[in-house]
Amino acid sequence: MKSQFALKLSAVNRAMGRGNRALVLAAVLGLGAMAAAPVYAQATKIGFVSTERILRDSKPAKAAQAKIEAEFKKRDDELQNLANRLRNDAQKFDKDAPVLSESERIKRQRQLADLDSDLQRKRREFQEDFNRRRNEEFSSIVEKADAAIKKIAEQQNYDLIIQDAVTVSPRVDITDQVLKALGG
């Protein structure tokens, strides 16, 4: 028992003759494939958000940066003063070294080394504390940005939002919308 498709194909073959059989088969298969294609075929809506711009240009990010800088200003100034003191002491030592006794030279070299070690330790602690504090502040901004991105995606029917890509077309970049949602 032949299927409806096979019956129609044999009828077309008889009508067209044997020479055009391959052509007819290709045409029928092509029409069948087109009929089987989904009717709802639509493009995927993709957006892009630059996390770097969000963490640099948004109002909450600028406010957090100013807050952190104010919070660490005193320690930064202390580090600058300590570095200046070390530089001045080293210059003074270089100037005085030819006339110093051996024991005095060793004593001052040890003091300079201790001061340098202290400076390096304080810089390292400062940087660790600064980074930790910055990460605390910026993690809340990232959470707010993620919420804004999800809201925009739902409102505008995005299928996919990508953050941080190598290259992006400006037509899919929605970073400005997210900045606006974050207040600027």
Rank of each mutant, 00 (worst) to 15 (best):
L25R: 11
K74G: 10
A63N: 13
E71C: 00
P60Q: 08
R21L: 03
P60G: 11
P60T: 07
K73M: 07
L23T: 14
E52R: 10
V39D: 07
Y40E: 13
F72Q: 01
P38E: 15
G30K: 05
E69S: 10
A26Y: 04
F48Y: 15
G30H: 06
V24F: 05
S50T: 03
A22V: 06
L55D: 05
L23C: 06
V24N: 01
E71I: 02
P38Q: 12
L23F: 11
K74V: 15
A43V: 09
Y40G: 12
L25H: 08
E52V: 05
V39R: 05
M34E: 13
V28S: 04
R75T: 11
R75I: 04
I46Y: 05
K74P: 05
A61M: 01
P60E: 06
Q42S: 14
L29G: 06
K45A: 08
K45P: 05
R53K: 15
L55W: 07
K45S: 06
I46Q: 07
T51F: 01
F72R: 04
A63G: 07
S58Y: 12
Y40Q: 13
A41H: 07
E71Y: 07
G32L: 14
S50L: 01
K67T: 11
D57I: 01
G47D: 06
G32H: 10
I46L: 09
G47K: 05
P60D: 12
I68P: 00
E52I: 04
T51R: 03
R53Y: 03
K73V: 10
I54L: 09
R53H: 03
A33D: 08
L55Q: 00
I46V: 15
P60A: 09
K59F: 08
S50R: 02
A63Q: 14
K67I: 00
V28N: 06
R53S: 08
K59Q: 10
R56S: 09
G30A: 10
A43Q: 14
V39G: 12
A35C: 02
T44Q: 13
A27Y: 11
V49G: 00
A35M: 13
S50M: 03
E69Q: 15
A35V: 14
I68Y: 00
A37C: 11
E69M: 08
P38H: 14
L29W: 07
K62F: 00
K73P: 00
G32A: 07
K67E: 13
A26H: 06
S58G: 12
K73Y: 13
A70C: 05
A26G: 13
K45D: 04
Y40D: 14
D57T: 02
R75D: 15
D57F: 08
I54F: 02
K73L: 12
R56T: 14
I54Q: 09
Q65C: 00
S58I: 04
L23Y: 08
L31T: 15
L31C: 12
S58L: 08
Q42L: 06
R56C: 01
K62Y: 04
K73G: 02
A27Q: 13
L25G: 08
F72A: 01
G30Y: 12
I68D: 00
A70M: 11
